[in-house]
């Protein structure tokens, strides 16, 4: 146990070092989601969005929950990229030839992606705060937002790592990634509530776990505990099923690659 902790920490430390030395990448990782989506998109659609429809004082406050979950989505789906590169350049093999527990590599990646995502969520909420978005449920609400975000992130990171282990080339990986991420966003309640969608989109969005996550985060920011708690419970159930499926698939792909 103690050995495994040492392994996971050493490997996580490596991810942190890598990120801190890729200054550009770090800047974009942290700044991009809030800049593009929250500020640009939020301001752009401020007038176009019907306040009646979104049921929020302004569009940015409606959008905040969506951007938080989008960040989880993007980080999660990209979570396997570094392992993909490790696989391609042989670093993974070097690690696998050492007597570490096979799961340590995976756990280090979860830990790292979750930590980065949590930080980004806090930055986004901070920026939203500057636009007068004050989470109704306070600090405890923020903690719950982080928790739900992490729960969603585990499943997404598993999908990403499973892909990293099974794709033939990183070209394939990025194609699938690009193909997945935008539809996931548009076919969810991130940008507009389901009620504003055409029927067929509603159905698809209803099947998208991201919708359930956003619908739990949004009342935590906009309305308060009373509206949030039932949504949180539903989201947790949905995510437990989602994570179980993703972890199963991820474990299978991992076993196939490294045994």
């Amino acid at each position: 146990m103690q050995n495994q902790i040492q392994e996971v920490l050493a490997l996580t430390n490596r991810w942190v070092k890598r990120l801190s030395r890729e200054k550009f990448s770090m800047l974009f990782t942290l700044v991009q989601p809030m800049l593009f989506w929250l500020i640009f998109f939020g301001s752009l659609f401020q007038r176009a969005a019907d306040v009646q429809l979104v049921q929020a004082p302004n569009y940015i406050s409606f959008l905040a929950a969506g951007v938080v979950v989008m960040t989880v989505l993007n980080n999660g789906l990209a979570g396997g990229v570094d392992l993909l590169f490790d696989k391609e350049n042989g670093f993974l093999e070097r690690l696998m030839a050492t007597p570490i527990r096979r799961s340590s590599v995976i756990l280090s990646r979860f830990l790292f992606v979750m930590a980065i995502t949590a930080m980004q969520i806090l930055v986004i909420l901070g920026v939203a705060f500057l636009f007068d978005v004050r989470p109704e449920t306070g600090f405890l609400g923020i903690a719950v937002i982080l928790f739900i975000g992490m729960l969603f992130g585990v499943g997404l990171t598993s999908i990403s790592m499973a892909m990293a282990f099974s794709v033939k080339s990183h070209g394939d990986f990025f194609s699938v990634l690009g193909f997945l991420s935008l539809p996931m966003i548009f076919l969810s309640s991130a940008l507009v509530p389901l009620s504003a969608m055409p029927g067929w989109m509603q159905t698809l969005a209803w099947l998208n776990p991201m919708t359930w996550v956003i619908d739990a985060v949004r009342p935590l920011i906009l309305t308060g505990w009373e509206a949030a708690i039932p949504q949180i419970l539903i989201a947790v159930v949905v995510l437990l099923v989602f994570d179980a499926l993703c972890l199963y698939g991820g474990a299978k792909a991992f076993k196939k690659t490294v045994g």
Binding site: Q6, L9, R18, R21, R94
Partner: peptide
Amino acid sequence: IGYVPQERAIDRFLTGREHLLLLGDLYH
């Protein structure tokens, strides 16, 4: 065993010493 893979299997962003320290942790 010890394993010396082909040259590309190096993390460009880590220093030489950090590579060794990482492995030191992995071998406990």
